[in-house]
Design a binder for these strands. Structure first.
Lengths: 209, 209, 209, 209
DNA sequence: GATGAATGAGGGTTCATTCAT
DNA sequence: CATGAATGAACCCTCATTCAT
């Protein structure tokens, strides 16, 4: 119960990470210096190193944090409605919303994320955030299974591979839409949203009966 | 008529770009310095700037080069066989092969590629390579159309959106497979290749009758 | 009320600027590198950038500093004695002393000095030093006016043009004497000082009755 | 008589120096690279080093060349008219014209010019150009002496010191006028030319009876 | 004689990180 | 605990100069 000492630390980590997030969002990770983060957060540069081992860990922390948000989004998406397709589309929207909010992280999902969970985590509580990825997967497993139960989703699919496949494909699709918006508008006279809807629908076909 | 003396330049550009590619591949573009490239290529740092205006142009050159390769791979994939599905799988393989050979570029495909074709190109011949992207699209258009003619591919798809959707999705899938290979093996007891095959098949469903 | 902690900064700025001055003096501004300044000052190169935004600001700081000194010298010269001619010669001596101490800056006086007072100043206090130039002019205006009152200086001269003319001419004379000392000794068998006295006297003629 | 071989060299040196002059004029000496000079002159970079030992010698050559021009200007100024004051003002104009044409060199006159006439000169003929400075002095000596004969110039002046004094002062004045034109216009509502006339007249006072 | 090719040496600047206090 | 101060290491890039051909 006597855990007073730990709370304050989290507050500082939060403050720093919020500042960092804003800057990463505006200028990218590589182009944001620790100095800038310190100034934005209202701490001294050295203090950042009290709360985060180094820049890499700060980034890692942010990635983890953002995953919690994604979990919330997906969780809400599934709860929001009943129908399988409706849910699917809501999940897609959740990912899109997430990409729009955390684009800097989104691109990292497809790249290698090197988070060494042995050495990186500062506070033990945070180790639990690692599980968020798993939790998201579980959410998706449940979604697929319930869709199979209603007969809307093919019963011969393998669940885990399907989830990862979707994860990769949706990420790629959303990212492409984000980066090539202009090109898409020009070449196929579609808005980003129209293009994405088309892609979402197409992918849905692959798992339905 | 043929201008002599132009060949040697290309040789050096080739040497430098090969060295750069290797390093970009190992450490990423941002983390590879011109000094390292110079050392790897066996030239002095200053010499690099004789053959490439700056680092950006070097990267741009590499991207262009790799696109040519991708075009070749896809072109060969389509020619290699006749059946629609066979061709589709060959195209997937081509992209995979390409990703394995040029991973550093592959991630750029999904990001914004800023190539200023007015100022970047060293040799005028290279300007044509800009068209390679378009040519790849044309290849894919033909593939889809021929599949529609045989009745294997749904006739109600929109061609351009479909191509871009595929492009984004396959990129995402391949990238995920590359980066999460270990995780995939652990969680679903599949090799990277098995996982990819599963994903490729799944996506194929979405465009077939 | 007085903010502590500001003093130390000035000490470092002083140290760095002293080192820079010496080197600029020996080799010119363009030929003096920040590395050399750092070594001479006993700091690391990076530390220079803690105290000066860039080389330009360092130069600007030096120019400003030297102007303050010149103001002091001229101010003291005028106060030191009463007679118009005595004062005139003291002013000449002040300029000479200044040139000998800050030769690198002296040549800049005749060139265009680009000091952007919005962006350059590190400490707000320094902005006031911009006024030093004006203050020197005021000193000289007073000197001329008092000489006109005593009837020693012609009353038909235009004050401001006269001051600027003198400024330019004395600068040119002193600089020539400094740079051609050997030649002067050889050709006219005069020491630098004798030559300058001759020139000072000659110029004085032009404003006296 | 058989000197065919030497002519071509001079042509190349001329071509190069003309190109260099133009660029120095536009961008200053330090900011003009040998590459740019080579391109402007239509030679390869390496060829520049065939005709000039290094950049320094090229600059030295230009300085020398420009001195010849100055000699011509002053010579013509003296010949152009008869009266002492008229001649004086023409000489001032000659210097001004020279400064406007060769500003980059003009500032060097007051600085130390390091021309090592033993090692620098490429062609022996050029060594004579060193004498140009002396010749200019002679011109001025004659001018002063003829003015003294007519009784317009004080007979108690020392000729050589006077000449050097004038040289330094006029240089300083002209340079100040060139660099502070805007400031002069603002502060004393005089055009550069008006200001200079004022200064020229003032200085004339000092040598007249 | 003329040059294409190559480079050593150095330029200014940035930044993540450390450490004494 | 928080930080002011300091820096090593790198970064991209430039340029005068050399030399084999």
């Amino acid at each position: 119960m006597a855990r007073r000492k730990k709370e304050p630390q989290n507050i500082h980590r939060k403050n720093i990470s919020i500042a960092a997030e804003q800057l990463f969002l505006q200028k990218g990770i590589k182009n944001t210096s620790m100095s800038e983060i310190a100034k934005e957060a209202g701490y001294s540069k050295a203090t950042l190193y009290v709360y985060f081992k180094n820049k890499e860990e700060l980034v890692g922390f942010l990635v983890l944090e953002s995953m919690k948000k994604l979990h919330d989004y997906i969780s809400q998406a599934i709860m929001k409605c009943d129908g399988t397709k409706e849910r699917y589309l809501e999940i897609c929207s959740a990912m899109l919303k997430y990409q729009e909010e955390y684009p800097f992280y989104f691109s990292m999902v497809l790249e290698t994320i090197n988070i060494d969970f042995e050495t990186t985590n500062f506070l033990p509580e945070e180790k639990e955030t690692f599980l968020v990825g798993e939790q998201i997967n579980e959410l998706l497993v449940e979604f697929l299974q319930s869709g199979m139960l209603t007969g809307e989703i093919r019963s011969d699919i393998e669940i885990l591979p399907t989830i990862f496949t979707f994860w990769g494909m949706l990420s790629g699709l959303i990212q492409m839409a984000a980066n090539k918006e202009a090109y898409i508008g020009q070449q196929m006279r579609k808005s980003k949203m129209e293009f994405l809807d088309y892609g979402f629908e197409m992918l849905y076909e692959s798992i339905t009966v």
